[in-house]
Write a protein that binds this DNA or RNA. Sequence first.
DNA 1: CGCCACTTGATTGGATACAATTCAGCCGGA
DNA 2: TCCGGCTGAATTGTATCCAATCAAGTGGCG
Lengths: 215, 215
Amino acid sequence: MDGGDSLSSGRVAEALRRAILTGDLAPGSRIRQEEVATRFATSRIPVREALRQLEAEGLVTLVPHSGAWVARLDRAECVEIYRIRERLEPMALGESVGALTQEDIAELAGLAEAIEQTPEVDDFLRLDREFHLRSYRRANMPRLMAMIERFWNTMQQYRRAYTVLIGTEGRWAVHHEHRLLMEAIQRRDRHGAEELLRLHIRRTRRELATRTDIF
Amino acid sequence: MDGGDSLSSGRVAEALRRAILTGDLAPGSRIRQEEVATRFATSRIPVREALRQLEAEGLVTLVPHSGAWVARLDRAECVEIYRIRERLEPMALGESVGALTQEDIAELAGLAEAIEQTPEVDDFLRLDREFHLRSYRRANMPRLMAMIERFWNTMQQYRRAYTVLIGTEGRWAVHHEHRLLMEAIQRRDRHGAEELLRLHIRRTRRELATRTDIF
DNA sequence: CGCCACTTGATTGGATACAATTCAGCCGGA
DNA sequence: TCCGGCTGAATTGTATCCAATCAAGTGGCG
């Protein structure tokens, strides 16, 4: 993200971001400035700036004169984000496949393997994220990468809820698609990889959309 | 953008945004907090929050302990933004075409006409922006729209420089493409419109990329 | 009994004051 | 002449204090 920022606001933002991503702060929970300020032994000014930053990242909702809440997405918003991802991530992958090194590909294969092995939800989420984001690593489009990462962050809590719901046996489609994706990457099949990724995201979107019990 | 915000930071952000878009604040110019604060008869706190917001929008670059500058894009960044737009705006248009009303289409036709008529650079820029953004209006994807608008904002200054460079006689390709686009919209040809828009943006990107004298 | 204006407490927004950091210019020395 | 460190003014970052705003609870009135 923005690394070991020496600024107070940066540290607060990073900590809050982590707390939101890990689920310690659930969607809809209120964030009180003073409370955060005391917890981080600072004043409210850096907290306010951190909240501004997180709002820009889509992790927090700010209401003037009212307060800050961990962003809560309804189904329509989730679907919209997935549909945007369906366009952006294939581009990132397409730009990247040709430039991935053999080491990169080996690493991706290892991640795909690890994803299939782990039963833990949090490991699954982390590895799946690593797998996809690293496959875009050589795209050389920093703004695009930043946007994609922000989307993964804002979706994280809903991905977790969904992953818990489907259970380990519900992941076979993911594993299958990852294997196809890896094959396309290995043969440097740019268009094939793009299309597979698009379908991968689209299928996930559709399944998520049917799951009414997440929202 | 976010209308007549009652918050001080919102007013400052809006004013600074306007100043950047109109070119009153050129790319690379430094923005001093105190100076802005006195100009708006407020303290530095709201100014800082406004700067944070504008940074998130990509209009301002913030460097810790150093200062704020109007964002300056190099050619690579411009190209990247255009390439992202090539994927996002066709989606917005594709979602919108089917839902545009006859009044919407008439309005778009009027804008396309006005674009061809005006010799003024600023009018051209404003009308062209209106034309495209309004064609996406019925997409019903608010986040996508917000992203697209931010891109138009961050590109505005470079669009202006480019438009000045090519002169009125250099706009024939734009006019031609707008006419084709209007025809596709009128026959509700979703895929045709998407493809035409993609090519429209791509051609602009390529011409912009050759123009080394803008950066 | 229900409704509305008011009060009160908590919370956020903003102003002022102070600390930390940067950077340009200067000085001394090799 | 060039280089390195020093210094102080300018600027940003943070803390503290006060004002504005909102929400919940209260009491009076119809």
